[in-house]
Amino acid sequence: MAEKVSKKDVVDHGKRDFLSGTTKAFGAAGAACACYPFIKSMSPSAKVEAQKYTEVDLSEIAEGDTKKVIWRGKAVFVKHRTQSEIALAAAGDKTVSIDPQTDAERVKKPEWLVTIAHCTHLGCVPIDGSTENWACPCHGSQFDVSGRVVKGPAPKNLEIPPYEFLDDNTIKIG
């Protein structure tokens, strides 16, 4: 019946046909471009991008206290360290072994530790620890007063976000 349209009826137009090749390439390029807006629509919106920076007023944080702030949807610890904590952090320079880093590399001013408050293992927010400064409630990682990992499973120290001191009492994270 009709479905058996014989082969010889169908002209082989060949892959080297310049016109159909051009048309295909041109159409495919357009189709690829058309995908872009759809994919891009799932990226952070202007509303999210607008929250690139978080300013923190340091005068509100008493010595020894830690404030949790949100920067780009992530929690950030801003810790006002006491003199004894600064000394403790400096002492730790020699003992930390999982991800060795000196305290001086991790702070801009010794009194202020600014660190992302997500465990480098799987992203939970550590809580106050009994032996070390912070302990992760999810899998028990421990972090010292410089945010360095002292006990795994976390593979790395708490991350330091980009930040700068706008003046003595204000930092801008981001």
Partner: peptide
């Protein structure tokens, strides 16, 4: 992915799509 089906938010979410969402 961006629309909110809530009487208090729907109209605003359309404006969110038109203004903030990339290519919304």
């Amino acid at each position: 992915m961006h629309y909110k089906a809530d009487a208090g938010l729907a109209f605003d979410s359309i404006q969110h799509i038109m203004r903030d969402v990339n290519w919304g």
